[in-house]
Design a protein around this nucleic acid. Structure first.
Length: 599
RNA sequence: GCCUCAGUAGCUCAGUUGGAUAGAGCAACCGCCUUCUAAGCGGUAGGUCACAGGUUCGAAUCCUGUCUGGGGUGCCA
């Protein structure tokens, strides 16, 4: 990376120049403080750095400091100039060519070891199996999977986990709803007569509940069993059967959609089986109690979360004897921290969750519980995603699952997986997202994902045309290809700075040179983008970057013809196209978006 | 009330350890298809970075306060 090389240059220059800088005692914080940036104004060079921050350490004027540093920064591959407190670097083509060679020979552009110490458990989506995934789940899914791909590209080890919320009040609610839909269907078919009154409203009124009921009744035995009992109140056995069926039915729907969205999970954890049935909850509760962080009051059992900064204590076991949502969730997080690898070491050193912003108040109590159980709260991290507004017919509707509205499935059907995923991650997670369904569906040209995919497809097309024999449309004559595939392969393998010379020498127009340089510097900076995106859990850095590269490429395409009669020139330019194509394909892959070879 | 996220071009948004003239897409206007994909390119126009103070060589960015909007503030999940 060019940037890293320049920073190294700067550090050693600072060491070397210390005597001339009032005997500055150089330390790491100073060398780390250099902020190398790409100036907007081309007159300020290809890279620039502001040295004003050294003024307070050296008691010297910024321009003077810059001058001193300029004196010791010698490299025949660049020109260093001073403007005010800035050092401006004008890079020679040798630098750029080296960067290009690096990308061509890299098996995976942007790959780095910035997060190689991280062993991450990322839990996300984690919907109740009580209905279809909604649009917000789509955002967490796209966000989480992109973050996982990014972190892995930075050397982290990540496990994706889906926590199935299949215990608790909501499961009872879906069971009740499905049951009454069954009764409704049986009545409609005339199989059930008598004075059965359906409830005015169901806990889950959505139409999908009817589908669950239909599927349940499709089995003759189950239907007969329902008919044999009093319809006004289902037996415990019937309730259990309906609940189990509904869970499977709705969960498999969710899984199918996540599969389709290319969002895989290595691990599916059932709240009911994993926590309730195995007794993890009482164990955790005992641990909390032994440490003295619980007490009984008002017939309930409380957690002293105020001891950890929460605004009030929280109920763990309700007065009716059942647990709140918090208790199993604490047990779950206790388990996450307690998992061991083959050597008996802690399996993870980062417990990362993606939650909707509506859960933000929940963080202090969970962090408190983690601390109370003796785990490191610093390893616990919650990424809060702001909610999604659906815009239908220009009208904003709030997301929610209790009302009839567009589900994630509907949206994916309408706009496709690629556009959905790209759109969902293209805005910072902490800003609420307007998802305009009509726009995303109709907007082929307005949708940035197509812009990037088109740039990629265009690169592929050029690379194809380069080695294919063109056929004259009028005469039907078959001409020689611009280069043979074999020759291009050899050229690519032996690529070096000298062979790339034609790429730079052939563009005498400074404006064209500028576009080429901007493109190369952008490609060279991919690694930084990937690292920052992973570190800040911000895939939107990558969508932004992919759009920038695409724009720069389209612009280059306009000013410079790639395929020419001259082989060495053509081959050199094809290397640039190859580098763009590789980088865009990698960027799209990190977002879980496909990179089509033709459009 | 308290917690939290946001407020930047007509609209949707970038701008992460404070740096040179604040950017992009869409919408608007003017151009460009005989030529490797026009799902494209070039250009014009559009701004008191919500407001007021403060910190300093320097603030969209940091601090304080105010205003507006979203979310939260359950023995729901």
């Amino acid at each position: 990376m060019i940037k890293q090389k320049l920073l190294n240059h700067l550090s050693s220059a600072l060491q070397q120049a210390a005597p001339q800088l009032n005997n500055l005692a150089v330390d790491d914080t100073m060398t780390a403080a250099f902020r190398l940036e790409r100036p907007r104004n081309p007159e300020h060079g290809d890279y620039a750095v502001n040295v004003s921050f050294l003024a307070r350490h050296t008691k010297m004027a910024p321009p003077k400091i810059a001058e001193v540093l300029q004196g010791v920064l010698s490299d025949d591959r660049m020109i260093v100039t001073v403007v005010g407190g800035y050092l401006n670097f004008q890079l020679s083509t040798a630098f750029l060519a080296e960067a290009l060679v690096g990308i061509i020979h890299s098996p995976a552009p942007g790959c780095n070891d910035g997060l190689s110490e991280e062993r991450v458990l990322l839990e996300y989506v984690s919907a109740n199996p009580t209905g279809p995934l909604h649009i917000g789940h789509g955002r967490w899914a796209a966000l989480g999977d992109a973050i996982i791909r990014l972190m892995r590209h930075c050397g982290a080890e990540v496990t994706a986990e889906f926590y199935i919320n299949d215990a608790g009040v909501q499961m009872g609610n879906i069971t009740t709803s499905v049951y009454w839909r069954c009764v409704e269907l049986l009545k409609a078919d005339g199989l059930l007569s008598g004075p059965v009154e359906l409830p005015e409203t169901l806990p889950y009124p959505g139409e999908y509940v009817l589908d669950v009921a239909k599927a349940y009744l499709a089995d003759a035995q189950r239907q007969a069993h329902l008919l044999s009992a009093s319809p006004s109140e289902p037996s415990a056995e019937a309730r259990q059967a309906i609940q189990d069926f509904s869970r499977e039915f709705l969960l498999s729907d969710q899984r199918a959609l996540l599969d389709r969205m290319r969002v895989p999970f290595e691990s599916w954890i059932s709240e009911k089986e994993y926590l309730y049935d195995r007794g993890v909850i009482p164990e955790t509760l005992d641990a909390l109690t032994r440490k003295g962080f619980t007490y009984e009051a008002e017939d309930a059992l409380w957690f002293k979360s105020t001891e950890f900064g929460d605004e009030k204590d929280r109920v763990l076991r309700k007065s009716d004897g059942s647990f709140t949502y918090l208790m199993p969730d604490i047990a779950y997080h206790h388990d996450k921290f307690s998992r061991k690898d083959d050597q008996g070491q802690a399996r993870y050193n980062r417990i990362l969750n993606i939650w909707g912003a509506d859960h933000h108040g929940y963080i202090p109590r969970m962090r408190g519980a983690i601390q109370a159980l003796g785990h490191s709260p610093d390893q616990f991290e919650v990424l809060l995603g702001q909610l999604v507004n659906l815009i239908v017919d220009g009208e904003r509707t709030r997301m929610g699952k209790r009302r009839k509205m567009l589900t994630l499935q509907d949206v994916v059907d309408e706009v496709g997986v690629d556009a959905t995923r790209f759109w969902m991650v293209s805005k910072s997670a902490d800003t609420s997202l307007d998802f305009d369904v009509d726009l995303a569906a109709s907007a082929t040209s307005e949708n940035p994902v197509f812009y990037v995919q088109y740039a990629h497809a265009r690169c592929c097309s050029i690379l194809r045309n380069a080695v294919e024999s063109p056929v004259n449309v009028d005469s039907g004559e078959v001409a020689q290809p611009f280069v043979t595939a074999e020759a291009l392969q050899v050229f690519e393998q032996n690529l070096n700075i000298q062979t790339l010379a034609p790429l730079f020498d052939s563009l005498p127009d400074p404006k064209e040179q500028q576009v080429l340089k901007a493109l190369l510097l952008m490609l060279d900076g991919f690694e930084d983008v990937v690292r920052d995106a992973a570190r800040f859990r911000s895939p939107h850095f990558v969508t932004q970057y992919a759009q920038d590269v695409s724009a720069q490429f389209h612009s280059f395409y306009g000013v410079c013809r790639i395929l020419t009669p001259e082989p060495s020139l053509t081959q050199a330019r094809l290397m640039l196209i190859r580098a763009i194509q590789k980088t865009l394909a990698q960027a799209l892959d990190l977002l879980g978006v496909s990179a089509p070879e033709r459009m």
